[in-house]
C-alpha cells in the first residue's frame, strides 16, 4: 500500500523532470545534442591522433589497442563520478532556496512536498533521471568510438562481465556518494558554494589515480594502495580484462568480489548516515 503510493509519486515526479526537460527540447536538439556529439567526437579525435603519434608509424596495431584502452576509461569515468556527485547534488537542489517575500525561504522540497511527493522520492526520481542521461552519454562515447574511429574490442569480448563490473562499480561509487552527501550540511546556507569540495576531491583523485588513462602498474609502489582505495581501480581493471582480453567471468572474480563488498558496505553506511544526519539537522540542530 505504502510502496504503491511511493511508486505513483515516483512516476509523477519523473514525469515532471521529463516535462521540464522537454521544455528545453529545442535547446536539446539544436544546441545541446550537437555540441555534446561534437564535444565527444573532438575529444575522441584528439586521443586517436595522440595515440598514433606516440606509437609511431611502425607500431601498427598497437595504436588501435592503446586507443581502445583509453576509450573505455573516458567513456565510463563520467558515469562513475556521477554516482559520487549525484547524492550531494540532489540534497543541494532540494534544500537550497532563495529568500522570498515574507522572509520565507523556499527550497525545492517544499514544492514536491506540497504536491504530495515525499522528498526522498523526489530525490530518487531526479537521480534516476540523471542516471539515464549519463548512460546515454556513455553509450554515445562507445558508439562513436566504435563506428567513427573503428575501435575493435577484443575478438571474444565478455560484454556481460563488463556490464556487471560497470553496474557494481557504479553502486560502489553511489555508496561513496551517499557518505559524502552528508558534507552538504556544512554549506546549507551558502548559496555561493556550487561545487562540493569533498566530492570534487574524491572524483578528481579517483579519475587520475583510479586508472582512467593508464594501468596502475606504472604508478610508484607507495601510491598503489591509495589507488586501490577507489572503486575506479577495480572497474577499469576488470572492464579492460573483459573487453580487451576477453576474460571469462571466473577471471574477473577478484574485481567482482571487491566491488560487491565495496558497494555493500558503502551503500549501507551511506544510507544510514544520510538518514540519521538529516534527521539530526532537521529536528535537533533546527537548521531547516
Amino acid at each position: 500500500m505504502r510502496w504503491g503510493s511511493y511508486l505513483r509519486a515516483f512516476a509523477r515526479s519523473f514525469k515532471r523532470s521529463l516535462k521540464d526537460y522537454t521544455v528545453e527540447v529545442y535547446v536539446w536538439w539544436f544546441a545541446y545534442l550537437p555540441t555534446e556529439l561534437l564535444n565527444i567526437a573532438l575529444g575522441l579525435a584528439s586521443w586517436y591522433y595522440y595515440t598514433r603519434f606516440v606509437v609511431g608509424p611502425s607500431g601498427a596495431g598497437r595504436a588501435e589497442w592503446f586507443f581502445s584502452y583509453i576509450l573505455l576509461g573516458i567513456a565510463i569515468v563520467p558515469l562513475l563520478n556521477m554516482g559520487v556527485e549525484q547524492p550531494e547534488m540532489a540534497l543541494r537542489s532540494l534544500y537550497r532556496g532563495q529568500v522570498s517575500t515574507g522572509g520565507f525561504r523556499v527550497p525545492l522540497w517544499a514544492y514536491y512536498y506540497l504536491a504530495g511527493v515525499p522528498r526522498g522520492v523526489a530525490a530518487v526520481s531526479g537521480f534516476v533521471f540523471s542516471l539515464l542521461q549519463f548512460l546515454v552519454r556513455a553509450a554515445l562515447y562507445l558508439a562513436l568510438g566504435v563506428y567513427l574511429f573503428g575501435v575493435e574490442l577484443g575478438p571474444s569480448a565478455n560484454y556481460a562481465g563488463a556490464a556487471l563490473i560497470c553496474a557494481l562499480g557504479f553502486l560502489a561509487c553511489l555508496g561513496v556518494g551517499l557518505v559524502l552527501a552528508n558534507t552538504f550540511w556544512l554549506f546549507i546556507y551558502r548559496e555561493d558554494v556550487h561545487v562540493n569540495p569533498f566530492t570534487w576531491l574524491f572524483t578528481t583523485a579517483a579519475t587520475v589515480l583510479g586508472g582512467t588513462y593508464f594501468p596502475l602498474e606504472v604508478l610508484p609502489a607507495w601510491l598503489r594502495p591509495l589507488s586501490y582505495a577507489f572503486p575506479h581501480a577495480y572497474v577499469f581493471e576488470g572492464l579492460r580484462k573483459a573487453l580487451l582480453r576477453g576474460a571469462p567471468l571466473e577471471a574477473l572474480s577478484r574485481e567482482l568480489l571487491a566491488l560487491t563488498a565495496y558497494a555493500a558496505v558503502a551503500i549501507l553506511l551511506g544510507a544510514l548516515l544520510l538518514r540519521e544526519i538529516e534527521r539530526y539537522v532537521v529536528y535537533k540542530a533546527r537548521k531547516v
Binding site: 522570498s100 517575500t101 515574507g102 520565507f104 523556499v106 527550497p107 514544492y111
Partner: peptide, 17 residues
C-alpha cells in the same frame, strides 16, 4: 499532511512554484 492542508503564502510562493 499535504493531503489535508492547502498552503497559500501569497507572493512568497511564486519563485518556488
Amino acid at each position: 499532511l499535504p493531503r489535508v492542508i492547502t498552503y497559500i503564502p501569497g507572493l512568497a510562493a511564486i519563485s518556488l512554484f
